[in-house]
Design a protein around this nucleic acid. Structure first.
Ligand SMILES: [Zn+2]
Ligand SMILES: [Zn+2]
Length: 501
DNA sequence: ACGTGCGGGTTTG
DNA sequence: CAAACCCGCACGT
């Protein structure tokens, strides 16, 4: 049935016609064109000029210089077709480049509780062969024709895939580094889909094959296997409701780029629960969940006052100006990705900050501002190595180590000796007892609605950087001995000191 | 590194 | 012959 292109009386042209009619009505670009269809785009349509598609289409030689032909590469799925409790499944974008695509295959499933491997689910939507796209340019229009109906889920969006690639995800952990100007530009250009803290993290420590904003490593508390796409036949293909994103959701309650939940669930230890933070502070669908302290006795000891002095060294660096909260936040972002650690000892992570904690003016308002919360988030993420979302440390190809999380038992570490801040923090975050305690020791968060995330700060940083063309505040150092964290930087990668002693 | 387009070449039906 | 596919090359980002 797919083998014959249905006659469509409304279309009076075929891509192979010797002459194509002059078209006065144009179609809006269809990223996910499927089925036998013919579309006419304006000659100045950028997407059309790029012959782009949401589907992973690769060029194929039809020995016809006038018509560009592309065929579908299918989708990259988990060999076990694992499913998250939410119902999400894996559907990565196959690389167009043959070499890169071969490298993708066989990589561990991004679902860290799944032992599956990534494999290509080939497209057989056109007579058992891949769906084909044809592009033909005329003076006034770009003609597009598709043949076949994809028998597989949609891969992740190209923009997502490109963003991850351009930001260097998947590479081994490197010393902290500022984004390049080009990366900043891309961040801005992609700002609709990107959110800054994960971007910084992605750039530096994206170890899983998850898309930047839909990493499921963190969601996955249970693991199951589904067979939805185990067979390629169109009959077994269920064009389910949820092929929009990297994880297909089969759960109506699950939300993907459609709505967002206000649930914020940050359980760091028995002291702090962020669930009362409103969604405009933490952005939607950020769900934090620390299931278990890494080391129960360490939790008790991990009080700054009682910690060994090596845990936190606030002595170095010089503050040259007073920061407003916003400035501090920007500085913080910038410096967190600075490259200072390049020439530092391996066992230290370097952060830049004011040596005088009173100048970290988070106490200007009695209640915590959004910047405060952002700052907290940054601290949680970078000082405590609590990622914005769970991830894998890619130590070697096909060898992932899971990040785990240190305990946070003392808000003084977040706010120094500023008692106002400490009190504010504890007032706000101690209201609810630690609830969702379990023993998986995983910090959980997910980004389902990244478009709602406030990326203003990073954009400001980037714009600033693009103007000044140099790092700001680089001379300010706050050295934090990472023995507080569970990660040890050995010069090449981070090791988890708890699970990898 | 990867996406993209080109084009020579091979294989199959 | 068409179609699918392989491969290397060039170029841009
Ligand atoms: Zn899997
Ligand atoms: Zn397809």
């Amino acid at each position: 049935m797919n083998c014959r292109v249905p006659y469509n009386s409304s279309q009076d042209w075929d891509i192979n016609d010797s002459t194509i009619p002059r078209i006065s009505e144009y179609d809006g670009f269809s990223e996910w064109a499927d089925g036998h269809c013919r579309l006419v785009y304006r000659a100045d349509s950028e997407e059309a000029k790029r012959h782009s598609s949401g589907w992973a289409m690769r060029n194929t030689n039809n020995h016809n210089v006038h018509i560009l032909k592309k065929s579908c590469l299918g989708v990259l799925v988990c060999s076990l077709r694992c499913t998250l409790p939410s119902g999400d499944t894996v559907h990565l974008r196959p690389a167009i480049c043959d070499k890169a695509r071969k490298k993708q295959q066989g990589k561990p499933c991004p679902n860290r509780q799944c032992s599956g491997r990534l494999e290509i689910l080939a497209c057989r939507g056109h007579c058992g062969y891949p769906v084909t796209h044809f592009w033909r340019h005329t003076e006034h229009a770009i003609f597009f024709q598709a043949k076949g109906i994809h028998d597989h889920p949609k891969p992740e969006a190209k923009s997502t895939s490109e963003a991850r690639r351009s930001l260097g995800s998947g590479r081994r952990l490197m010393p902290l580094r500022e984004p390049t100007k080009r990366q900043c530009r891309e961040i801005i250009q992609n700002s609709r889909i990107l959110n800054p803290p994960p971007l910084i993290n992605d750039q530096e420590k994206n170890y899983c094959s998850c898309p930047p904003f839909e990493c499921i490593c963190i969601q996955n508390l249970n693991h199951s296997v589904n067979h939805q796409y185990q067979h390629h036949s169109p009959a077994s293909y269920q064009p389910a409701q949820n092929l929009e994103s990297y994880w297909s959701s089969q759960d109506g309650n699950h939300i993907h780029n459609q709505q967002f939940s206000n649930d914020i669930n940050v359980n760091l230890n028995n002291q702090y629960d962020f669930s009362n933070i409103s969604a405009d502070l933490f952005q939607p669908e950020e769900i934090f969940q620390l299931d278990q302290p890494i080391k129960p006795d360490f939790v008790q000891q991990n009080d700054i006052a009682r910690s060994p002095p090596t845990l936190l060294d606030l002595g170095s660096g010089t503050i040259h100006r007073e920061f407003k909260t916003e400035e501090y936040w920007q500085q913080n972002i910038t410096n967190l990705v600075s490259d200072d650690s390049n020439n530092s000892s391996n066992s230290r992570l370097y952060f830049n900050s004011s040596p005088d904690n009173s100048q970290i003016s988070l106490n200007n308002s009695p209640a915590l501002s959004q910047n405060d919360v952002n700052y907290i988030g940054t601290k949680l993420e970078d000082v405590y190595n609590i990622p914005k979302y769970e991830y894998f440390n890619q130590i070697q190809d096909n060898d992932y180590k899971c990040g785990q999380f240190p305990e946070i038992s003392d808000s003084k570490f977040l706010f120094g000796e500023d008692t106002n801040l400490v009190n504010n923090f504890e007032t706000h975050y101690n209201k609810n007892a630690y609830k969702n305690y379990n023993f998986d020791s995983r910090f959980v968060e997910k980004y389902d609605a990244p478009q709602f995330v406030d990326y203003t700060a990073i954009l400001n940083v980037c714009e600033n950087k693009m103007v000044t063309n140099e790092a700001i505040f680089n001379e300010l150092d706050l050295k934090i001995n990472n023995s507080l964290s569970n990660f040890h930087y050995n010069g090449e990668s981070f090791e988890n000191l708890v699970t990898q002693p």
